[in-house]
Simulated scan of single mutants.
Amino acid sequence: MAHIRYTLHEGVRAAGEALRRAASLGLLVAEEPSLAGGEERDAILVLSFGTTFRQTRKKTIDAVVEEVRRTCPHVEVRLAFTSHIVIERVKENEGISYPTPEEALRKLKEEGYTRIALASLDIIPGIEYSYKREVFDACRSWFHRMTLGTPLLYWQGQEEKRDDVAEVMAAVAAELPACALDEAVLLMAHGTPHPANAYYAVMQERLEELGASRVFIYTVEGRPFLADILPKLKAMGVKKVTLAPLMLVAGDHAMNDMAGDEPDSHKSILQREGFMVQTMLRGIGENAAVRKIFAARAGEAYEALCRGADA
């Protein structure tokens, strides 16, 4: 599994804890030797930010979880949300109680599970994924073995690692509408203050390498802004724009920030700039190829769970 984990150079013979932690890139594996022995009970815990939009949740988050179950049919698979606000609103509006990651792990421990694979439904390794790493570190001692898989995008083809970005962008581009010379597609990503915001530049580059020269990525809360894209569209003579979310779900950002009728929505801004605008309200979790990649990431975490320190 060298393509999904970083290993220190063989010449490093006496790495201290600080160096080992700094070099813990890719899929993570932790063991608690004191809990070895006895029958092992395995589970996969899928971790998602969550959404209050019921219909898109069924088509995306729930659909990914079902894909994970198909990938690992003999393993207990559960779901936890990281957003406390989403958890509260879903419970209030739908009567459904989703646990936080810590609550879900505590329950698994109480039920006697000994090996846990954490699967992330994040797109990039930003703040949300950093939170999952903290959960991994905080709870790893509860179980004989724990693993944490990578988000949808992690490796970029460096040092003989695979190119997650190329794989995912090809899957996304395959479901985008074809563009005439006066048309373009704008993909709205979330954006983050985390340095992982730089992934969007790599994603844009991979789209161009795929020949999707009229597809542009912009973000709600990072860079590039929609305003950064407008001059490019005008210089290319674009008249018609299709807006689509580059997010797992088509939730609040897609329905309101992107496609809403308010004056500050992205659709309204583009219309005032003279563009014809249509919207695609489908999260990338509705893309079957993307769901399979998410499930593959979970499968990697489970395989490492079974192999342990040899993974």
Rank of each mutant, 00 (worst) to 15 (best):
Val249Phe: 04
Cys306Ser: 08
Ala235Asn: 12
Gly149Cys: 07
Val215Asn: 00
Arg41Glu: 11
Leu281Val: 12
Ala22Cys: 08
Phe216Glu: 08
Val172Ser: 05
Gly211Arg: 01
Leu243Asp: 04
Ala311Gln: 07
Ala301Gly: 02
Gly26Glu: 06
Ser120Ile: 13
Glu94Leu: 07
Glu94Lys: 11
Leu45Arg: 06
Val202Asn: 09
Val249His: 03
Arg89Thr: 11
Glu221Thr: 02
Arg307His: 11
Ala235Ile: 01
Ser141Ala: 15
Glu175Tyr: 12
Glu67Met: 10
Glu221Leu: 01
Gly274Met: 10
Gln271Thr: 08
Ala227Asp: 13
Glu183His: 01
Ile284Asn: 07
Gly11Tyr: 13
Ser120Tyr: 11
Asp252Arg: 00
Arg70Asp: 11
Leu47Tyr: 09
Pro263Phe: 00
Lys239Glu: 02
Val172Pro: 04
Lys292Cys: 12
His84Gly: 12
Leu27Ile: 10
Val90Thr: 13
Asp42Glu: 15
Arg145Tyr: 06
Met1Glu: 10
Ala18Asp: 15
Val86Ser: 12
Lys58Tyr: 04
Glu103Trp: 00
Arg13Asp: 13
Leu181Thr: 08
Phe136Pro: 11
Ile61Arg: 11
Ile4Pro: 10
Ile87Trp: 13
Leu210His: 03
Glu66Phe: 08
Gly251Ala: 15
Thr60Glu: 05
Ser141Leu: 12
Thr52Gly: 03
Gly95Asp: 07
Asn93Trp: 08
Gly95Ser: 05
Ile284Cys: 06
Thr52Arg: 06
His3Arg: 13
Glu66His: 13
Leu248Asp: 02
Leu305Asp: 01
Thr60Val: 03
Leu176Val: 10
Glu92His: 12
Pro195Gln: 00
His9Gln: 12
Tyr200Pro: 05
Leu8Asn: 10
Ala30Val: 10
Glu286Lys: 01
Val238Arg: 00
Lys234Gln: 06
Ile127Arg: 14
Ala43Glu: 10
Arg206Asp: 11
Pro33Val: 08
Leu243Tyr: 00
Ile127Met: 14
Gln271Met: 14
Glu273Gly: 07
Gln278Val: 14
Phe81His: 01
Glu111Ala: 12
Ile4Ser: 14
Ser97Pro: 03
Arg106Asp: 14
Thr82Ile: 13
Val238Gly: 03
Gln55Glu: 15
Ile269Thr: 14
Asn197Ala: 06
Asp228Ala: 10
Pro231Phe: 00
Leu176Asn: 07
Gly38Asn: 02
Gly50Phe: 15
Val238Cys: 04
